[in-house]
Structures are given as C-alpha cells and as structure tokens.
Nucleic acid binder design. Structure first.
Lengths: 244, 244
DNA sequence: CCTACCGATCGGTAGG
DNA sequence: CCTACCGATCGGTAGG
C-alpha cells in the first residue's frame, strides 16, 4: 500500500476485514498484522538495533525485501508499533475509571485493567521503554514527542480523577492547605501529589514485571492486591503522616 | 601515560593476552577506566546492539582494534559494567539502612542515597534494564543470573529491615495474623508485603526518571519527598485499609 | 511475493 | 597503540 508492490495490493485487505466463507475457520490475520506482531515481540526481546528486519522476515517465513511491501522503513515500523501500543493501552485502561462505584473501586479496576493489558501485551510496555532510552536521531525525537503527549494526557486524566475524589470526600485531605494558591511560590495540590504517586506506583509495577525473572512473574501478580492496599492506604491517609 | 608504540600490549592486564611481566600494577588505569565509563554511557544511550565498539573507540580517540588490549569481547565488557554498577549501587545505598535513628528516618536516608546514586550514575540503572530485556543468548543467561543474585540479596536486606521495624513497634501491623504460619497455604507476612511494596516503589521512581522527559526530570526530584510521604503512610497504616 | 545486489558497518583477528 | 583486513550482517533498492 505504501510503496505499491506489483500484486500485493490485491492480496492485502489492510483496513477492511476479509469475509469468511460460511463455516470456514477464523480468517487468517493479514501479513501486515502478523508483521506488526512479530516485530513488536522482536523489538521487545532485542531492543531497537538488536531486532533485525531479516529476523522478522524469517519468523514470517518470507524474504527480507518483501517486508517493504508493508512498511516504509524500520523507523516507520517502530513508530507505528509505538502508536498502536499507546492507543491500545489507553483503550484498555481508561474506561474503568469513569464507571460507577467508589473512587477506591474504580481505581482498583483501572489498575487491574492496566496490569492485565501489560501481561497480555508485554511488548507494549517494552516499546515505551525503548522509545525513551534506545533510539537516537530523528526517530528519538518523534518517539519521545509521541510518548510525552500520551503521558501528559494520562496525567491529566488521573489528576482529574484524584481531584474529584478529594472533592467528593472519598480521600482524606490532611494537606488541604496546599490547594490554596496564596503565595508566589506555588505548592503542589493534593491531587497533583497523588497523581505523581500513582504514576510512580504504576511504573513500579510494570517495571517490576520486567525484573521478575523466571517463575517469579506469576508470584508477583498474585501479590498485586497487597501492593494495591499499601498504596491506597497511603492515599487516603496522605497528609496525616508524622515525621517521627 | 605512555602513548607510543605497540609494545605496551605486554603491559596491559588484558584478559585475552598473557602478561609476561606479571606483578606489574595497573600500568594504564585511566584508559581502561575511561573505556568503561564511555561504554556505560553508550550502552545506556543506544542499547546493547546499538552501542558499537567503533563508536566507543571514537569517543576515546583511539582505533577500534585497540580496545581489545583492555577488553576480551563486547560481552565481557557488558558483564563487567553490569557487575560494577550493581556493586556500586549496593555500596552507595546499603549502609544508610543500618545506621542510627528510627526506621522511618533510616529508610528515608536509604531512599535518598539510592536516588542520588541513580541521578549521578544514570547508566547504572539503564544497564540493569538492558540485562533483562535487550541481550540474548549466553550473555542473557549470565546477566540475568547476576542480576537475580543481587536482587534476591537486596530483597533479603529489605525484608529484614521491615521485619525488625515491625517487631520494634515502629510500624503498625493491622494484618498481624498473616505472620502466623497456621495453615498449609502459607500467606505473606507483613514484612514480605512491605518489602514488595518497597521494591515496586523504588522501581517506579527509577523508571519514572527515565520517563521524565526533558526538563521534567528536575521537577520530579523536587517531589521525591511527596512520594515518600505517601509511601510511608501506606506502610504505617497497612492493614487498616477498608475495602469500601 | 521473489532473486540479486548495494554500500556501510558490525565484532573481531593478524601482525607489527 | 596502530594499519589492514576478515566474514557476516545490517537497512534498503532494483527490477520483475
């Protein structure tokens, strides 16, 4: 589609789904979809430079030059994967935050959806890490910009959540004075602090998954609720902490 | 510093070449040290495959083959850097935990030392991430084993810290029943839960630094104390949390 | 989708 | 520490 192969365009239903014939089994994923999946896995396994287009082609059972019927370049491939991962993450985790129930229950649901997504799509979080620490040059700028945009948006969503939870009386506000913008040196609001804590908590969980080597990965997930309870207790009591 | 002539290869403590004049103590320490520092930076910037020995040599102002007077291979170079990083991290952060003062104050000091180390040696944490997600083959096994060993040791140190803090009455134990090993299905002790929370908290902070793009890095460090207070409040109150 | 092929660069070696 | 060089592989192109 991008470069216009000589017969490829007739065989590739990129956007429209192929129509299954009667009792036929599930339609095979298009080559392009398989390419994106394999590439995502390999980027996550080997890093940006370590993932070669030749290896991707091997896993697909085709020759390397054939990849260019589906992608424009390695850079574009990475950017598309990053974009998809961020969108999929957002789609999987955002809605639970807006449903019914207490702030406590909604945030817990959001956490579960986020972790579930990370478990099912481990390469998605890996790509985000690569984007900020493995690529260079023009690609680095584009990837960083995309990531920053998504991250700021997510930060806004979470900050709104915490602010509303505080205003709704679902979170203690021992540091209530922080909200007043009475000075030239602006201090953090309680919602900002909790948002920051949440982002750190979530990054920690996703990173911990990476470091949970071997069989410790499942053990870790079983303990998610323990981590959650400690975190939540820090939220509802934040501000009451004594410096002893 | 001796710069001329190839005869210095006989004086190098290189792993691949014999040292006929054994007993000589570090004839050229600075070149090797500079090599390790430059290599650490480049690995962190570009990933394992993305960091080329040629580029390392360029930054040192020498030719690529000359590197092999100081290293045996790229794999060995990476392993040595990883080893050094882990040792340096341990040395920088462990002792504050054993000093005088309350558990609260000691853990806060330990946190500060850890974050300070991560700020001063950003490539150290990056190497750990590479070790579990970027390398493959024989190197991956060796790196993972080394990392796992350090991590388990650190986990033991922290678990002991939390257990002693609990026994000393410095942390609330609302979930005290967890300690009793009265059933066949063993439950987590409070110390284990807090250790797990701590590891997640720390990973989150270190990861957050990676994601704090551009100027947001300094802003982030200013808020460390906010994060700490939320975390500590979760610790001292853990177990009292209601499921509402 | 393929074969054939490009210049550049990779980690590493030989030899001085 | 150097020059000269190795086979392998890189991302990507030409052309059908």
């Amino acid at each position: 589609m991008i470069l216009g192969g000589f017969t490829m365009s007739a065989e590739q239903p990129a956007a429209s789904s192929s129509s299954p014939r009667g009792g036929e089994s599930d339609p095979l994923p298009s080559t392009r979809e398989r390419l994106l999946e394999v590439a995502g896995q390999l980027f996550a396994e080997r890093g940006y430079s370590g993932a070669s287009l030749g290896e991707i082609a091997n896993r697909l059972g085709i020759r390397k030059p054939s990849l260019y019927n589906h992608i424009a370049s390695k850079d574009e491939l990475f950017m598309e994967l990053l974009e998809r991962s961020l969108d999929a993450w957002q789609a999987a985790s955002d809605s639970p935050l807006d449903g019914a129930g207490s702030a406590h229950r909604r945030l817990r649901r959001h956490l579960q959806k986020t972790v579930d997504f990370a478990v099912e799509s481990p390469h998605a979080t890996a790509l985000c890490r690569l984007a900020v620490s493995q690529v260079s040059g023009d690609l680095a700028e584009r990837a960083s910009a995309l990531l920053l945009r998504h991250r700021l948006e997510y930060q806004g969503v979470m900050e709104r959540f915490f602010r509303e939870a505080i205003e709704g009386g679902e979170l203690a506000t021992g540091m209530a004075d922080c909200n007043a913008d009475d000075g030239p040196a602006r201090r953090s609001t309680m919602a900002e602090i909790l948002t920051f804590s949440w982002l750190t908590f979530l990054d920690g969980i996703l990173m911990h998954q990476v470091f949970a080597l071997g069989s410790r990965r499942e053990v870790y997930l079983d303990r998610l609720d323990d981590l959650w309870q400690v975190f939540w207790r820090g939220c509802v009591g934040a501000g009451d902490v004594s410096d002893g």
